[in-house]
Design a protein around this nucleic acid. Structure first.
Lengths: 131, 131
DNA sequence: CAGTATCCCCTACGATACTG
DNA sequence: CAGTATCGTAGGGGATACTG
């Protein structure tokens, strides 16, 4: 499947690559990116867009994404200050990836759930080592 | 960019989707899958293929991948027992995704590193709140 | 060989309180 | 509004020891 692209030699999985994926595909990043993709938002707007996130985690996530060039932080010197976050060009390239990821999960989740049921039924039933 | 694919409506990011991605894109899974993609392997072969992994983590990773239908565990009743792990059809569909991920990191890592340098220089220098 | 079991640490995260 | 600072906890992972 997908013979359309010649697949130009997938590069090796170095520590630097893994680190980047970790920083960018982590628990909250996907949701934040996803939300910022639709429209730029302020800090507290984002908190509401991503319901379960705490201030601390949201701040950490935004800083990490900012550091990696995925989002941009714009301070409007009003009173009180307003801070707007928006996705960068680099961030949108990531969004395409995330969409692919999401489509994959949507496609395979039924199969995965089936596999899980089988596993849970035949493995978790009998205890003890599996050799 | 990439107007080639119509992008058939990326599905929402539910908890189930995130869970699957977490289980499958975690620290060791990528390397294990990658290694198994080239050829089926026994437990200790895998340990050598993925140098930094511990027994415990490798076992946990393999169990998780097996449960999700990504790898298959075959017990050869010899003495001592031999156990072979091989990637499933489902697992190979994931591999395509991982390749895409890796290609993305390879493409964007230079930009990301540049962004990091800028961030570290202009933000980490002056301490204090950023409002 | 292919694990399981135990201990232990460390950091990721949430909760809470405070500030320009 | 948009954070920073501090504390406390849960669990993911390593090191080590043991087993069919």
């Amino acid at each position: 499947m997908t013979e359309t692209a010649p697949a130009p030699a997938p590069p090796a999985l170095t520590a630097a690559h893994r680190e980047l994926l970790d920083q960018v595909l982590d628990k909250w990043s996907l949701q934040v990116l996803d939300s910022l993709c639709e429209q730029p938002q302020r800090f507290n707007e984002l908190r509401r867009s991503v319901p379960a996130v705490t201030q601390k985690s949201l701040t950490a996530t935004l800083r990490r994404l900012e550091r990696n060039g995925m989002v941009e932080r714009l301070v409007v010197r009003s009173r009180p200050v307003a801070v707007e976050y928006r996705i960068t060009a680099l961030g949108t390239t990531l969004q395409d990836l995330v969409d692919a990821l999401l489509r994959w999960t949507a496609d395979t989740l039924p199969d995965v759930e089936h596999a899980r049921s089988r596993y849970d039924a035949e493995v978790l039933d009998d205890a003890g080592p599996r050799a």
